[in-house]
Nucleic acid binder design. Sequence first.
DNA 1: GTCTATAGCGCGATAGAC
DNA 2: GTCTATCGCGCTATAGAC
Lengths: 189, 189
Amino acid sequence: MDTKSKILDTAQALVETIGANAMSYQHISDAVGIRKASIHHHFPSKEHLLESLVARYETYFMGVVDRIVGSDKTGRAKLKEYIALFESTLREGKRDKACPMGMLGAEIQTIGEKPRRRVRHFYSENDRRLAAILEQGRKDGSLRFAGPAGALAGLVFGLLEGAMLVARGRGSVAHFRTVTGELLKLLEG
Amino acid sequence: MDTKSKILDTAQALVETIGANAMSYQHISDAVGIRKASIHHHFPSKEHLLESLVARYETYFMGVVDRIVGSDKTGRAKLKEYIALFESTLREGKRDKACPMGMLGAEIQTIGEKPRRRVRHFYSENDRRLAAILEQGRKDGSLRFAGPAGALAGLVFGLLEGAMLVARGRGSVAHFRTVTGELLKLLEG
DNA sequence: GTCTATAGCGCGATAGAC
DNA sequence: GTCTATCGCGCTATAGAC
């Protein structure tokens, strides 16, 4: 695997556990096994690094979600798979991880203009796909709710981000599972 | 107002906007109008400062919530007031603010052991009160849901924290209102 | 209780050799 | 593309005068 990807992998893991503000070139240097100056060769500034990180994550995440959307399942089954994506991040590694887009959302005022725009773009792209899943569920009868699917998509995504942060704060994946189970119950009427 | 309170007020506003990691003694020094060394006289270390901040916020917040719980209203009306607390924080000041306990939840790995314990304690105390509001709503018929009220309390709180972060990321209080409106619709059956 | 002064460190970033 | 070396800054924290 090339150095650039190794740097991004490490940076992403750091954002997921301690956040972008607490992450440093020194951390990445130690983990990847190259010097700080070499990181600057690939990513001239921290803002560039974060921008690349968000762009890569959006490509990866939307690819996974697109496969879920395009599969041959009920809306409710797709929603369950979507939720499972977040739970798998939470369970990853030794220490609980939060969604990188949730962490960067919390740090949105300090990450710089370009990363900020990328994070907003991620939110928009995600909402479109999640709304499509929910709308399908309503049409095929596997989910029950009133009003625009986009509004409910905002609820579901906000819930997943918040529940991850709280669950991690409590050191409890069980808490996350309880909360998402509750959501599914509400949407099954 | 005494210096200690001024320092805590400023620190809290900073946590709500940029987070604990981005907040520095220099920021507080500039805003309060005293020197960095004077802040250390009141709070020997940043960890002490954060610990006091969370303790004070819990006392304040639970006091407000207790008044809501003890009032003569339906469970649904109380839930609306509880939600309004979060929206008022989001609208506060020039730049959108997030809930300080949500911000510290995101930064939970880097704030130190004592503040971490206080944040967890806040979550527990909050859940008890929110569950009581929801349970009352179910009994008086103003809210409809199945299963333990504690599980739904986790859902509601997670949603509020997450929706605040996402709404702030999008620079849109309207997003928060849409999402919380959607939650109330789901709980009204 | 507030001040000046400073220690000591880690940060992001750059210059230039190889 | 990676290295050594270093710059300049901001950070938390401390010592000691007033």
